[in-house]
Design a protein around this nucleic acid. Structure first.
Length: 528
DNA sequence: AAAAAAT
């Protein structure tokens, strides 16, 4: 690129990119005037119908770089039944929903039919939208193929195809699906392809499916931002020991914590740690892929809106998700793959702000620590002494010893069955004392976001003396489950009167189907 | 010693 262009680009505003007036006005309303580098680089070419190879990470404004030109181009022509005009493929459900939000925001002056095809949600609503004719189809690969096999979807009318986060699709084993899907779409289409990195498999894919693409690359964010203070925290390796270490660090950091993500390597540990933290009256929520879709969305929304201070999460939350800058990242588990460390840490210290990242390390973690230090090329500092200073008793002591808090027996039911959350990944429980705030009926029918154990943990609600959720004026007596899977945990459940006085069972029952409580983001199909 | 995604 010539230096003339470079200078010109710095002075660019959205008005210079060739977007339609209606799109421009939505952008202005959203408060943006100056495009990011990826937007300035990609939008003019995308408007000309060229294929784009965008190499950019999240947080660079990548989504708007394809959403804005797409809406402009969609102004001509209209959708036919079962033949979507554009298709955007995303690796995760949350990302797909996020892209939908962008279409709603920037398409507010248009009558766009938007269909979101993701798993974990009933087919009916999605099929109706397809039937009506979708201008914009946003999908995760599995559900998209499922719809196609049911014959409800023809991809022969797709004019623009977007493949987002291609390298992540690769990590998740989606590449064969992506290839299948690409082959169903006529080659006269325009293809916009985005990836944060370009491993060989991805390069091959671009060679196969892009035609004379314009390559737009934006500077990689520094691997681990210089503004992030990273510290290692030694701990005994028992789970209770790690939880105690975590609580200690959180309390130490408390005055500085605006909001934080706590990463665990495994979903069961997310659920368990979440229960433990709420029991210790921390303002925490949970997010992992086995939670039902509503709960996932509700948690994310609550965290984004600042209603939750701590989010315990699996690596779903490590990449891509549009979570605002957090002040702290805690790695309750050290990541097994060192790249994940970089992604997790990347959730803080964005846009030049300062952030802190603490990683709990046990003796068994040494090799993963070595890998991280090798990858980032820096030696990480210990917060208060390295592993050689871990107290020996911490390793062999009984986990049931007294240590100030309540015994952490949450993972066992009365029958001794381990209360693991299966595929359906129910929400973890909340403190029993919440019962006095919440009438049973409300628990059965309130949306997850209003449930104390979900978006607003009991401690937080009590402190802020907010009113308990009221029963909904109108509700279906028995919200339907959105799938027919058998309840795996049903046979193990104690009878109602035998159950401990915790409300997580009610959460299970009340939150699976959508009933009348379908979140707004899933209803959107037309102009807003 | 993992997570994610169709069921």
């Amino acid at each position: 690129m010539s230096s003339d262009n470079q200078t010109a680009q710095e002075a660019l505003t959205f008005a210079d990119l060739g977007l339609s007036p209606k799109v421009l006005s939505a952008v202005t309303d959203a408060g943006y005037t100056k495009p990011t580098p990826i937007q300035a680089g990609a939008i003019p070419h995308a408007l000309q119908g060229k294929d784009i190879l965008g190499i950019a990470q999240t947080g660079t404004g990548k989504t708007a770089a394809f959403v804005l030109p797409m809406i402009t181009r969609l102004e001509k022509g209209r959708a036919r039944a079962r033949m979507p005009r554009t298709l955007i493929l995303e690796p995760t459900r949350e990302l797909a929903a996020q892209v939908e939000e962008n279409f709603v925001k920037y398409g507010k002056n248009h009558k766009l039919n938007i269909a979101l095809l993701i798993g974990g949600v009933s087919f009916d609503e999605q099929e109706k939208k397809l039937e009506r004719g979708a201008d914009v189809l946003i999908a995760t690969p599995g559900r998209l193929l499922d719809h196609r096999e049911r014959g409800k979807l023809l991809l022969t009318g797709v004019e623009i195809l977007v493949i987002d986060e291609a390298d992540r699709m690769l990590d998740m084993g989606f590449i064969p699906d992506i290839e299948r899907i690409c082959e169903m779409i006529p080659f006269t289409r325009q293809t916009l392809f985005f990836s944060a990195t370009m491993p060989p498999e991805i390069t091959k894919l671009t060679e196969k499916f892009l035609q004379a693409p314009v390559r737009v690359e934006v500077a990689k964010a520094a691997t681990t931002a210089a503004t992030v203070t990273q510290r290692l925290v030694k701990s005994g390796s028992k789970a209770w020991d790690k939880r105690e270490t975590l609580r200690r660090i959180i309390r130490e950091e408390e005055p500085e914590i605006k909001n934080a993500i706590i990463f665990c390597n495994r979903k069961v540990d997310v659920a368990e740690l979440y229960r433990s933290l709420t029991r210790h009256e921390f303002d925490a929520g949970a997010l992992h892929g086995d939670m039902d879709q509503r709960a996932r969305m509700a948690m994310l929304a609550a965290f984004r809106e600042g209603k939750l201070k701590l989010l315990v999460a699996s690596d779903v939350a490590a990449r891509g998700l549009d979570i605002p800058d957090v002040s702290h990242v805690f790695n309750y588990d050290i990541p097994i793959h060192s790249e994940d460390y970089v992604h997790r840490i990347g959730r803080t210290g964005r846009a030049g702000r300062s952030g802190k990242a603490f990683t709990i390390v046990t003796k068994a973690d040494q090799k993963y620590l070595d890998a991280i230090e090798k990858l980032t090329g820096q030696k990480l500092e210990w917060h208060d002494g390295d592993l050689s200073t871990v107290v020996a008793s911490a390793e062999d002591d009984s986990p049931r010893r007294s240590r100030g808090g309540k015994p952490e027996r949450a993972s066992r039911s009365r029958t001794g069955e381990k209360r693991e959350r299966g595929r359906s990944g129910k929400l973890p429980s909340e403190p029993a004392r919440m019962e006095k705030y919440v009438p049973d009926e409300a628990m059965e029918t309130a949306p997850v976001a209003e449930m104390p154990g979900a978006a607003m943990p009991g401690a937080a609600r009590a402190e802020r003396s907010e009113p308990a959720p009221r029963p909904r004026e109108e509700h279906k007596p028995q919200p339907a489950r959105n799938d027919n899977r058998p309840r795996r945990d049903e046979e193990h459940r104690p009878r109602r009167e035998d159950r401990p006085r915790r409300r997580d069972d009610d959460l299970d029952d009340g939150t699976i189907g959508f009933g009348d409580d379908m979140p707004a983001f899933m209803k959107v199909s037309a102009k807003v």
